[in-house]
């Protein structure tokens, strides 16, 4: 029984971190109607940035946040404006531009393999002051960096939710995601909105990277498993919804952790896809999605 509770709580903790990467994906989709296949690679870039920050300064890994998050925002912002924008514009009358999906896949290949060329294939772990710290509670163990990570996710989620609801830029982003044409008629500059959305989505990856570095390793294709999880999560939660992404992440974490207590871990993977398809069929808008989108 304790094992199941332990698994449940660990699932929630790890799931929130999955949720954080999914928030970025869902934000980009909500605005641009594009699935960003390079999302995992952006996470990888963030993780290398955070790794080198920790290794070179030797500081507490969470001090990397004010450096890595703006860096990733900038990275996403300019990636959208230089690479994706021209392609997006060529197909702007199409509601869901498929060429852009292929371009993000191209970016994924380029980034992952550039990392392989520059950093090599080895696995790197940053030993930090919080690495390996645990809470013990009735023979149940919870990792401190995971607890901190889950906390940071909640703060980010609430902040982004507030930002979209109340700030000027947030309102413009929401208007664009509801109706592109109407928003641009209202004088909202679409290109700028896309850049900011892509930047914010990437910044979420940067945040997730800083949270992961104290207890995870980094290598060139580290983003791929997170990528596929993020796809499942955004559909569970509803494409475009921030609370949905975090909740979806937690659900995935719970399925993975608790499910594995009753079956071999290889079967939980299948269970995950099963739940995903079930949600798609029964409620394609996910937990919090707009009906408009599926």
């Amino acid at each position: 029984m304790l094992g199941i509770i332990e698994a449940l709580i660990n699932g929630i903790l790890m799931g929130s971190i999955y949720g954080l990467t999914a928030v970025g994906l869902t934000l980009i989709f909500g605005v641009m109607k594009v699935i960003n296949f390079a999302h995992g690679s952006i996470l990888m870039v963030g993780m290398f940035a955070a790794y080198w920050f920790v290794i070179l300064t030797g500081w507490n890994p969470y001090f990397a946040i004010p450096v890595v998050v703006p860096l990733l925002f900038w990275f996403g912002y300019y990636m959208q404006s230089f690479i994706i924008k021209p392609i997006f514009e060529a197909e702007k009358d199409v509601r869901e531009p498929i060429t852009v999906i292929i371009v993000t896949t191209g970016i994924w290949y380029v980034l992952d393999n550039l990392a392989l060329m520059i950093f090599g294939a080895e696995f790197r772990v940053a030993k930090t002051s919080v690495t390996g710290q645990v809470f013990e509670f009735y023979e149940m163990y919870f990792l401190l960096p995971k607890v901190i990570g889950a906390g940071i996710t909640m703060v980010c989620g609430i902040y982004l939710y507030w930002f979209l609801k109340h700030s000027r830029m947030g309102k413009a982003i929401r208007a664009t995601s509801l109706d592109r044409e109407a928003a641009s008629l209202m004088g909202i500059k679409q290109a700028k909105i896309y850049n900011v959305a892509f930047g914010l989505g990437s910044a979420c990856c940067g945040m997730a990277a800083c949270v992961l570095i104290p207890f995870y390793y980094v290598y060139p294709t580290v983003g791929v498993p997170f990528d596929i999880k993020a796809f499942i999560i955004v559909v569970l939660g509803g494409l475009g919804s921030i609370p949905g992404a975090i909740l979806g992440g937690i659900i995935v974490g719970i399925i993975e952790n608790v499910g594995a207590q009753f079956m071999a871990a290889t079967w939980t993977e299948l269970l995950l896809y099963g739940v995903f398809l079930f949600v798609l069929l029964v409620k394609p808008s996910g937990l919090f999605g707009q009906k408009h989108d599926y």
Partner: peptide, 19 residues
Amino acid sequence: LRGAYFALATIAVGEGVRV
């Protein structure tokens, strides 16, 4: 389903069959 949902659903089916 529409574009993105269909694409993601097919990824899940493909991976599900492999697993």
